[in-house]
Simulated scan of single mutants.
Amino acid sequence: MKFIHLLILFLVFSSCKKESATLTFSEINILKETTTTIEINMPKAIGKGQAAEKINTTLNTFVCNALHIDASMEKKETLEESIQDFNNAYANFNTFISEELKEELPKWEALIDGEVIYNKVDFACIAMNSSINTGAANSSLLLRFFNFDTNTGNLLTTKDLINNVEEFTTLVEKYYNKEVNSTFTDADNLLNDNQFQLPETLGFSEEGVIILYDNFSVGAFEKEIVEFTIPYQVANTYLKI
């Protein structure tokens, strides 16, 4: 009987330990409309431990990098400082343009969004995107997935997530070719231009592994986004998570 009691206590403890690794998230919402328009909607990990702190630091860094426009200025480390940095960059450039062209710049806009798209025990995937318009014909768009070990808050790389990167790349290429062929009329001429590579980051949802190439990562398809999902029943063989 004593052994059974100890076993039950062990199972309860193990269950609680695993549950605690599933972090909860709230949301940060910021809207600043002054000389520029800045809107930020992003997740915030809840908890006093190091894991939540590290996750929030990583997400904040993405936002701060997106708002850092003027390379001559030191990049800031907090959201408020980065918002002011963006406004200062606009003010400085607007002053220069006004003196040279005798007219003011259009209002700059920065729209940054993030969402927790997968959150299980020990693992969370967060999708972040930024759209920065500094007066050009098209906004500068950046989309990234952030995969975290929720026990430690460490950011997981593709090698942490995939057990055979070479074979997984071959699988992704098959899905990619199918998607491009069904989307682009001139796909045959473009698919062979470059050696195929995985995107910089992988996404995870309830349905499967999200593969996304934005207009920076697919040079052949400028200003286009190529996105598809590989179901888990196909991808599970290659996954470490």
Rank of each mutant, 00 (worst) to 15 (best):
S15E: 11
I46N: 09
L105F: 10
N94M: 04
A52Q: 03
A110C: 03
K17S: 15
R144G: 11
N119K: 00
W108N: 04
N138E: 15
Q50G: 10
L11W: 08
E53G: 07
K76L: 05
I126R: 03
A110N: 02
S131W: 06
W108P: 04
C16L: 15
V121E: 15
N56S: 08
F123N: 04
Q50C: 08
A66G: 09
A137R: 07
P43L: 04
T24K: 10
E109P: 07
T95M: 12
A124M: 02
E104V: 02
A45H: 00
N60W: 08
V116A: 09
N65Y: 11
I83H: 01
F145H: 06
S26K: 06
E39V: 06
L67D: 05
F13T: 12
A51T: 04
I132G: 06
L7C: 14
W108D: 06
E109A: 09
N60C: 09
F86V: 02
D70M: 00
I112T: 01
E99Y: 12
E19I: 06
L101Y: 12
E104H: 07
E80C: 03
E74P: 02
N133V: 04
H68Q: 00
F62L: 07
K107C: 08
E80T: 02
I132T: 04
L101S: 13
E27A: 09
L143A: 15
I126F: 12
A51G: 08
T150N: 01
V121S: 13
E77I: 02
T34D: 13
A136F: 12
E80V: 03
N29T: 09
E19Q: 07
K18C: 13
A89N: 00
I112W: 05
A66N: 05
A45T: 01
E81S: 03
I30T: 05
S20E: 13
C64T: 04
T58R: 02
S131N: 11
I8D: 14
I28A: 12
G114N: 11
L23S: 11
F25C: 03
K120E: 15
Q50P: 12
F148R: 01
K32C: 11
D113Y: 08
S139Q: 06
F10Y: 14
F145W: 06
S98D: 15
L143K: 14
A21W: 09
L23I: 09
F96A: 14
E104Q: 08
D122A: 10
H5L: 15
I83V: 03
I28N: 14
T134Y: 07
T34Y: 10
N129M: 15
I4Y: 15
C16M: 14
M128A: 05
L9T: 08
I69V: 07
M128H: 02
I132E: 06
T134D: 10
S98H: 12
I83L: 02
L141G: 07
S140I: 03
C64L: 04
S20N: 13
D122S: 08
T22A: 13
I117T: 09
I28H: 12
N88T: 10
T95R: 10
P43D: 07
D70Q: 02
A127H: 10
T152L: 07
C16D: 13
A110D: 03
S15I: 12
E104P: 06
I69P: 00
S14N: 12
S140R: 01
F62G: 04
L79K: 01
F62P: 06
I46S: 06
L59T: 01
